[in-house]
């Protein structure tokens, strides 16, 4: 009894419950036949949200005022440069990944420079820098839509044991980040810095190094997401990242990570990512128009966040 109740005190449970409810409500309309198809689609599309959400989660764990708004631009730039260097030729997948990661490293490093050297607030620094990254992407792309190499496209859209390959990638990344947060010194440092930067510094934590590495990590994750998304959808588009700005923040908040900093939650990111996809497809199947869909999505997000936070308040 007590143990079964205890699960409701876990911050990630609410995003998973919400995802399950929405899943069931969709099936109630479309019939149980669509269950596997819906789950497969949710896993595929949810993976991209999960990867950028993990990065945003690390940054938001640093505490109030820390957020990376350049995620969409980094995704676009990494995907554009990656596809350009691969030039649709077979055998270039790893080269493309390397270039995408390099692009992420550069944008992340640029953000760090702006935040630390110019002492800009992260919101301003990353938002302003994202205009630059977006422009570089436009300039290098010149409107061309380069297809990913066939093998890479097959991988991105393929599956293993019934689970989309992109979901496997996202799962591996999640596990790595979970280990870093829970079992490594760097994770402790990140969580300590997010709770009280001054106290962490006085306890011997190199807080600025922790912040810098975090801002680079989020850019690397965004570049992986961009690379995979472009391979998945048959090419990079200049607006491909735009929906992931709000998405990355929403999955962090719904997933139970503390907006006040110092507390991360990896499983919650997954529940929230699935939920964000499922809620849109549910409203679609119920025939809601685009306007109503957005209003309802926003309302539902607010209620989930309230439910999750009031539970935690009672702990």
């Amino acid at each position: 009894m007590k143990r079964s109740m205890q699960i409701f005190t876990r911050p990630w449970i609410w995003s998973w419950l919400a995802a399950a409810v929405v899943f069931a409500m969709t099936l109630a309309l479309t019939g149980a036949d669509g269950a596997t198809g819906l789950a497969y689609a949710a896993l595929s599309f949810g993976s991209f949200a999960a990867i950028v959400g993990l990065g945003q989660m690390l940054v938001m764990t640093l505490g109030p005022g820390n957020v990376d708004l350049s995620i969409p631009a980094t995704m676009t730039l990494a995907a554009t440069l990656g596809l350009k260097v691969m030039n649709s030729e077979p055998g270039n997948a790893m080269l493309g990944l390397g270039v995408a990661l390099l692009a992420g490293l550069l944008t992340g490093g640029m953000n760090v420079l702006l935040i630390f050297l110019l002492r800009l607030p992260p919101i301003i620094a990353t938002l302003a820098a994202s205009l630059v990254y977006q422009s570089v992407a436009i300039w290098s792309n010149r409107g061309l839509r380069i297809k990913p190499p066939e093998a890479l496209a097959d991988f991105a859209t393929g599956r293993l044991i019934g689970v989309p390959n992109v979901a496997w990638v996202a799962l591996v990344l999640s596990i790595i980040i979970w280990i870093v947060l829970e079992r490594s010194l760097w994770g402790r440092w990140l969580l300590a810095s997010g709770q009280n930067m001054r106290a962490a510094r006085l306890a011997g934590v190199p807080v600025q190094a922790v912040r810098a590495v975090t801002y680079i990590a989020v850019a690397l994750l965004a570049s992986v997401a961009g690379y995979l998304l472009a391979s998945f959808s048959g090419g990079a588009a200049l607006n491909m990242g735009s929906e992931y700005l709000l998405m990355s923040i929403a999955v962090v908040v719904i997933g139970g990570t503390s907006v006040a900093g110092g507390f991360s939650n990896v499983p919650g990111i997954w529940g929230a990512s699935l939920f964000m996809f499922l809620v849109v497809s549910m409203l679609n199947s119920y025939g809601a128009g685009a306007g109503l869909r957005m209003v309802l999505t926003g309302t539902i997000i607010i209620f989930i966040v309230i439910a999750a936070s009031s539970r935690r308040g009672r702990l």
Partner: peptide, 9 residues
Amino acid sequence: GRDGVLPLW
């Protein structure tokens, strides 16, 4: 509160 305790831990 200001310099020492990490309150969530």
